[in-house]
Design a protein around this nucleic acid. Structure first.
Length: 479
RNA sequence: GUCCCGUUCGUUCAGCGGUUAGGACUCAGGAUUUUCAUUCCUGCAACAGGGGUUCGAUUCCCCUACGGGAUACCA
């Protein structure tokens, strides 16, 4: 349990590895770290965990940086924002890891292991068959330091942590509360790979210590390795940070959120016209909720309301339907200037009347769920009228429609300009003159102009089309 | 296989020993609107199962079932 007012300044960190585009699950982890740090008036660090040379993907760091920037998740220290705690790329910190692992070796907490991967595979297979826990059997533990030094000159080796073999590791997690894992279940973790780079476990602990991280907020998949980390802190004589292991994000079928069942990259959602604010809001509420009727929160409100002690334990399904609703809310409530500017980016190769574009955009503002919908919703303004369907045809064939069209065309012809307000006046006049009102009045005009029975408010369409086009379209129906 | 974590409406989040189990999304119906959308109202819908503890369990404990994670020289 995290208690307010503890005499420490909070430092959190987001530490992804650059193996692809940022995942929405990572976004949520970053968000919780960021929100918590801001709430506690602490510091939020970004650290790139690139110790696995094989998995590095070109452009991943750029994607990480740009995603965070677009989302407004700002770090206080990290790549491009160096301070005395850096560098913030693990691949540039090998000197530190080597120094620390040497300490471990000197103290007898770590040892070289010369076992081949073939032997390790074999061992694992045997253990599975015997239905016992899998893990390293400690063959190289007993090699003398003299022999170890000698063999190291010619043989490949890794460095392992000498995990206690007995007892129980008990620890507290802010989300999971009390967790117990038997030491017998914990493997002699590899700390340094044969290529000389550290594994996650070593690098993570060393960096968190030197970067003075006070709260480790990360995904649930790390929970089983906490004992290793705790033991490392103990060996080093360092104080361990507090832990909070977040529930996972799931597919609709409750399996781990994966690309097979939809988009998982932040970039994908941004490209589809979801706003960063909506995305943040939605993700923040997956795993935690302040209660009450409201679901819409600005970043500042999230920071204000967040309670790290109330994070949910169970995995959460990423429900696009709710995201769509929420994104729609953000667009509806968006400041007009900002909306217009953003919406204009989504026109694609739609041919629009530049002068009247804003009118069309405003007309569809409340009907958008994502910005990707802009061209679709705008089609009724920019395209030719579509061929009327059966229901529309019926309306056109009404006797009253003839009168309405005639009166409408005449009124429009008399005007110099055609604005939304003029249109309302005209329709009133047409109603009085023809005696037709309600649906029978409005529907035919809509169909006459667009061919559709549904669409945005007619006034906007009328103004967008302009006088000439209005008359042309209405008169095209030989009634 | 072994270990760890989890389980409240279809989804998400409230509830933290006594509630008609609440909100949001979805869905259905209605109102408003020239239509769709928006907005508003109403409704449908859940404590995985079994044992305890207790005067009383959704809430605490245990077991089972189910789900997820970890078991890599990946993070």
């Amino acid at each position: 349990m995290f208690k307010q007012g503890e005499l420490m300044s909070v430092v959190t960190r987001f530490a992804p590895s650059p193996t692809g585009n940022v995942h929405v699950g990572s976004q949520r982890t970053a968000l919780y770290n960021y929100i918590f740090a801001r709430q506690q008036k602490g510091k939020f660090i970004l650290r790139v965990e690139d110790t696995d040379q094989n998995r590095y993907i070109e452009g991943a760091v750029e994607n990480l940086l740009s995603s965070l920037e677009q989302l407004g998740i700002e770090f206080d220290a990290g790549p491009g924002k160096e301070d005395d705690k850096g560098p913030y790329f693990q691949s540039e910190r090998n000197e530190i890891y080597n120094r620390e692992v040497q300490r471990l070796m000197d103290q007898g907490h770590a040892y070289r292991c010369f076992c081949t991967s073939e032997r390790l595979d074999e061992l694992r297979k045997e253990q599975m068959e015997k239905q016992t826990p899998t893990g390293y059997d400690g063959k190289c533990r007993s090699i003398s330091s003299e022999e170890s030094d000698e063999r190291a000159k010619t043989e490949k080796f890794v460095i392992r942590l000498k995990i206690p073999k007995e007892g129980l590791c008990e620890f507290k997690d802010i989300v999971r509360r009390d967790v117990k894992i038997a030491w017998s279940q914990v493997d002699d973790q590899i700390l340094v790979k044969s290529d000389g780079y550290p594994t996650y476990h070593l690098a993570n602990v060393v960096d968190d210590h030197y970067m003075e991280v006070t709260h480790v907020i990360r995904g649930e998949e790390w929970l089983p390795s906490v004992p290793k980390h705790l033991f490392l802190y103990e060996c080093f004589g360092w104080e361990a940070p507090q832990m909070a292991h977040l529930p996972l994000l799931l597919n609709a079928d409750r399996s781990k959120l994966s690309k097979r069942q939809g988009d998982v990259a932040v970039e994908d959602y941004l490209k589809k016209g979801y706003t960063p604010d909506a995305l943040n809001n939605f993700l923040a509420l997956l795993g935690w909720n302040p209660g009450g009727k409201n679901e819409i929160y600005t970043m500042d409100e999230l920071i204000e309301a967040f309670d790290i002690n109330k994070i949910t334990k169970a995995g959460a399904v990423f429900d696009v339907q709710k995201l769509n609703w929420m994104n729609g809310q953000y667009i509806k409530n968006m400041d007009v200037e900002k909306y217009l500017k953003e919406a204009r980016k989504w026109l694609g190769d739609l041919k629009v009347n530049e002068d009247k574009l804003d009118i069309a955009l405003m007309a569809v503002k409340t009907s958008l769920s994502t910005f990707q919908d802009v061209p679709v919703k705008l089609a009724v303004f920019t395209g030719e009228p579509s061929a009327p369907e059966a229901e529309a045809k019926e309306m056109l064939e009404l006797e009253s429609t003839k009168l309405v069209f005639k009166a409408y065309a005449e009124k429009v012809a008399k005007l110099d300009d055609l604005k939304v307000d003029d249109f309302k006046v005209i329709m009133k006049e047409v109603q009085i003159e023809t005696g037709v009102k309600g649906k029978n009045l409005w529907m035919p005009v809509r169909i006459g102009l667009t061919g559709e029975i549904h669409g945005p408010e007619l006034g906007y369409i009328v103004e967008y089309l302009g006088k000439e086009e209005n008359i042309k379209r209405i008169m095209s129906y030989k009634l």
